[in-house]
């Protein structure tokens, strides 16, 4: 199984996003580096709008992710409700 990842800047905007991703993807690993985190996950990683909204206490458009996104890997699919990264092999 191959690893997908998403890397985000660390700041006040991303703290609830990182928390949501870690809660929704129990198999994910959090790697902290100066000013950023890289979240690795075997096979698949899902970012869910609802989980972020719960922590944020307001509506959240998944495309807001772009502001603090650093990098990612894997095939991406995005809808209004979730963004997934996955490898087929």
């Amino acid at each position: 199984m191959s690893t997908v990842f998403i890397a985000l800047q660390t700041n006040d905007d991303t703290r609830p996003i990182i928390e949501s991703i870690m809660a929704d993807n129990p198999h994910a690993r959090l790697n902290e580096a100066p000013a950023m985190v890289k979240i690795d996950a075997e096979g698949k990683l899902t970012v869910k709008r609802e989980s972020i909204e719960e922590r944020l206490g307001r509506e959240f458009d998944l495309q807001e992710l772009h502001i603090n996104l650093i990098s990612l890997s894997g095939n991406l699919d995005e809808t209004d409700d979730e963004l997934t990264l996955s490898w087929n092999s």
């Binding site: 800047q9 996104l69 650093i70 990098s71 890997s73």
Partner: peptide, 13 residues
Amino acid sequence: GFSAQSDEARHMT
């Protein structure tokens, strides 16, 4: 750097 890289995620895709 990070501001540019936030666009790179889209470019990579």
